[in-house]
Design a protein around this nucleic acid. Structure first.
Length: 542
DNA sequence: TTGCAGTCAATATC
DNA sequence: GATATTGACTGCAA
């Protein structure tokens, strides 16, 4: 009867509870199994992944760094369904095994990358039998992600780093084999993991894979095997390429391989990577401090003045905001750990505010961070009144939004009005700009000290404040700094998710850095106001 | 359209 | 050679 009902009147996924989703997962797996093999997988014996219960799904994950918070919730659903014929421990095992297989990597991974095409060993590689990628593996990982309890991303990455270094395993190998990511992405992920509740489903996947990998008792051996095989393949290739002129690389048709050597300009020569000069970065940072969300016009001006493509400037702002935000996450974690776990508030709750503010907070961000000060900048700005205020408002405003949780980044949703010049533009949730207005009208005008010379960014604002700001910026902006600290507190993971971020954040407020930021913010506001009140158009000075 | 998340991949740095 | 940094790109959501 239940089956009939389910088949004829399936509820939308979003309306299903975990338990309610289970049958659909089973069906999906069953369908996938058919693709590969055929029959409904009875008891996890064969490939057909038998998803028995949520328990089975979570099991593999729960062994690891699962945040305590989620546990309760899941535990409920975990209760082995007695009624389920398949809910035997075996079935659970099957799923676990499935998931724990040497990860399914990445087929998705770079297309071009022939993980093993050239690798002869692949076939025999028993240890790392890749999961049927297309089949359930891919699906199951997604299902796992969707159903997994909250994981301690920080703890997971810490453990992964330990295992990798202890066993002399590289990020590249790990990333391509286990996560399906490139070395750079792995490095970034391991160094600056975002808290679980801030990750999208896709973003959680690598962490689930890491957790599963950590749970796999043979994880290291498998990777070692891969390493060996890779080496073997490399030697073989090298050998053959030396002997024959023909490099063994499979010439992907029409692909530009030899780009450097290629005599004839490959169709579509790769464009050289843009590398911003330090001065350019400085200038952009300054601009960011004034307006994290510059208007198209401002971007245009910046690009012109710095002699960069507008797309480069746009990308820079996007990347910078995004990275600053991440730094903030780390900061939060640290703060949280310091603050000690306290009562934990629901992740979701936290998440709300967390994200965005980052900008402000970010180190560089003199901007945001400072804004947080309670009466701070905002107040100051206000007092000034007049048009100027509006202009200056931005900064303060950003942060101002939620005095209560200042430490946290402004919620993404924070409505942010924007600058006048940007008016009309959709604003990022954070509400980047000042309260009402974004920076002083013409941004450029708002720009810092007039006297500065674009070229000499360093020289920038002669004002004391400016200088201070720079210092602060530098000191805090560095991600690296935070990272290390983070690493230091492994246990904090729990606290990370478990404790109310607010608490942590609050604690952090007292630190000198924060005060410094506040001071910087004030100075910036002051400058902005000054600039805003000027009549003559001012150019960006860097 | 704009912003963001997640990545890639070139390049820097260790 | 491994790892870190970072400009650019893709896909998605509002």
């Amino acid at each position: 009867g239940s089956v009939s009902d389910m088949l004829s009147r399936p509820k939308p996924w979003s309306k299903l509870t975990q338990k309610g989703r289970e049958p659909f997962i089973r069906m999906q797996l069953w369908l996938n199994g058919e693709l590969g093999q055929g029959v409904l997988p009875v008891q996890g014996q064969q490939q057909g992944p038998a998803l028995h219960s949520t328990t089975s799904l979570q099991d593999p994950l729960q062994q690891g760094c699962v945040s305590s918070e989620s546990t309760p919730k899941t535990s409920a659903s975990c209760s082995p369904a007695p009624e389920s014929p398949m809910s035997s421990s075996e079935s659970v095992k099957s799923l676990t095994e499935l998931v724990q297989q040497p990860c399914p990597p990445i087929e998705t991974s770079k297309d071009g990358k022939p993980p093993e095409p050239t690798d002869p060993p692949a076939p025999d590689s028993q240890p790392t039998t890749p999961l049927p990628l297309s089949g359930h593996s891919a699906l199951s990982i997604q299902e796992l992600v969707a159903m997994s309890p909250e994981l301690d991303t920080y703890g997971i990455t810490k453990r992964v780093k330990e295992v990798l270094t202890d066993n002399n395993l590289g990020q590249r190998l790990f990333g391509e084999t286990i996560l399906g990511l490139t070395q750079g992405s792995v490095s970034d992920l391991l160094a600056r993991p975002k808290p679980w509740h801030k990750l999208s489903l896709k973003g959680r996947e690598p962490f689930v894979r890491m957790q599963l990998w950590l749970n796999d008792p043979n994880n290291v051996e498998k990777l070692m095997d891969m390493k060996r095989m890779e080496k073997k393949a490399y030697m073989k290739r090298r050998h053959s390429s030396v002997s024959d002129s023909q490099p063994c690389e499979p010439p992907a048709v029409g692909i530009d391989y030899s780009q450097g050597a290629s005599p004839q300009p490959q169709h579509q020569l790769k464009k050289p990577r843009v590398v911003l000069a330090p001065e350019e970065k400085e200038a952009l940072k300054r601009a960011y401090q004034q307006k994290p969300y510059p208007s198209p016009k401002t971007i245009e001006e910046l690009a012109t003045q710095l002699n960069l493509k507008t797309s480069t400037v746009i990308n820079w702002f996007h990347n910078y905001r995004s990275r600053i935000r991440r730094e903030l996450f780390i900061e939060e974690i640290q703060a949280g750990s310091q603050g000690q776990a306290g009562a934990s508030d629901s992740p979701s709750a936290r998440s709300g505010r967390a994200a965005p503010s980052s900008e402000g907070d970010s180190c560089d961000g003199v901007e945001a961070a400072d804004a947080e000060e309670p009466g701070g900048p905002a107040a100051a700005a206000k007092s000034q009144g007049g048009p100027a205020e509006a202009a200056s408002a931005p900064a303060p405003r950003e942060e101002a939004p939620r005095p209560a949780e200042r430490a946290e980044p402004p919620p993404p949703g924070t409505p942010g009005p924007d600058d006048a010049d940007d008016a009309g533009r959709p604003r990022p949730p954070d509400g980047p700009d000042g309260p009402d207005g974004p920076a002083p009208v013409p941004n450029p005008a708002a720009a810092p000290a007039a006297g500065e010379d674009a070229a000499t960014s360093a020289a920038a604002p002669a004002e004391g404040p400016g200088a201070a700001r720079d210092g602060a910026e530098r000191s805090c902006a560095l991600p690296s700094t935070s990272a290390p600290a983070a690493t230091r507190r492994p246990s904090s993971l729990q606290s990370l998710f478990g404790l109310p971020e607010a608490a942590g954040a609050r604690d952090s407020r007292d630190n000198p850095l924060r005060k410094k930021k506040a001071a910087n913010l004030n100075s910036i506001i002051h400058r902005l106001e000054k600039a805003a009140s000027r009549e003559e158009p001012i150019e960006w000075e860097f």
